[in-house]
Design a protein around this nucleic acid. Structure first.
Lengths: 217, 217
DNA sequence: CCAAAACTGGACTGTCAAGTCCAATCGTGC
DNA sequence: GCACGATTGGACTTGACAGTCCAGTTTTGG
């Protein structure tokens, strides 16, 4: 059975080695988020993490394996960031706050970089089966987090019984990804705002609260 | 003033030259759609288009200029494809047909490749200002096409006067892009279907027709 | 027909980046 | 302190790919 590029090159690791590995992955994650997968060379990573080539190849079989580690790291980072405002969502109002947070983050960077996970997905999904599997898991975790919040709303009667939290979550994440891609391209938050307002309205349409149709703009 | 990478290397072109240029761009567009920008080398393009290096550099200043031409070509191709079922949209039912078309196309490729324009956007938006400008224009044309149909619906009273066709179009395209990205990653049409159903429901929410809330699945 | 310009073939260069290798050092258990 | 594996430095190899160059061919315009 294929273990996948996730496997360590070395089986055991000391504390120092673990720290080195961490430095490598974090530096790589930052560079990749800023420049993209292909524009990031191992030399860049070496320099940014103050390591040597043998260190990188001691911990990763090849660049693909390193990129898989980057996917994991970015997923953890984004998920943790999101869990702050996303799993805290208890109402439509909470969702709107999350929307505003996301828009603010995008505005701060003028859309540049887009979504760290989305960019990785576009760059790796068709090129590395291992990375793709990790990205699928990442999106699933993301959706689950949102779905749990929606389920709780449903349990409290805020969402109709007919609503499907899992499907809603997938739709919301899609809108987010699409909005971020357009925001990255146009360097404007407007598409992101419109996409998320649509998503909010969609959730609202499944709620028992009454919201005016024109949530947007 | 900057003319941008769009400019020809040569000012005038004969019929034969024009044909050669076309062969190059089309071959490049296909390869890029299949493998991505970075995984497509000029050697690949030469082979696929049966041309030589000097021919490529006769018509394009560098690879970036060629990629800009690819963006234009893909935009035209996709827009023309979409205009068939998109500008023909006269009602919510027409939109639903469009949705089904898009899902079918994605299913046929198991999501691989995602959206040709979306992939180009993710790969080039932060790397080439010229390409980004073309991509912005491409998305704008796409949205305009959809917006025009929505405006006509509005003129016929099918959409409420308060609805904003332009904003709706942007939201729909965002949902499409996000759905295609997730479909590409998960190799499933499900996220795309959910995203587009959300978009349809959003448009329906601004219509005067009455649609059941649970359009989705 | 004849120049000039458009076009083409294909070898060549320079660079850069992934991956290899080995010797040296560090750290831990015994 | 010793052995052994983990760790590290950094030079080296290999291959690939963007871009250059020039000589040759075709086409155009007059």
């Amino acid at each position: 059975m294929d273990i996948g590029k996730t496997k360590r090159t070395s089986p055991s690791t000391t504390a120092r080695g673990h720290a080195t590995r961490l430095r490598i992955v974090q530096a790589a994650a930052e560079l990749v988020a800023a420049r993209g997968v292909d524009a990031t060379t191992l030399e860049d990573v070496m320099q940014a993490s103050r390591t040597s080539k043998s260190q990188i190849y001691h911990y990763f079989a090849d660049k693909e394996a390193l990129m898989c580690a980057v996917v994991k790291a970015q997923s953890d980072r984004v998920l943790e960031l999101q869990s702050g405002c996303l799993s805290g969502v208890r109402s439509l109002e909470g969702l709107r706050q999350w929307r505003n947070e996301v828009v603010s983050l995008s505005r701060a960077r003028h859309g540049v970089g887009g979504c760290p996970i989305g960019s990785l997905a576009s760059a790796l999904a068709d090129r590395s089966e291992d990375a793709r599997a990790l990205l699928v898991a990442s999106f699933r975790r993301w959706e689950s987090q949102l779905a749990r919040s929606l389920e709780q709303m449903q349990a409290r009667g805020a969402l109709r019984p007919s609503a499907r939290p899992g499907d809603l979550a997938t739709a919301v994440v899609s809108a987010l990804q699409g909005g971020l891609l357009l925001a990255q391209t146009t360097r404007s938050t407007r598409p992101l705002e419109l996409a998320l307002d649509m998503a909010l309205a969609y959730v609202a349409a499944h709620s028992t609260e009454d919201l005016p149709t024109g949530v947007a703009s």
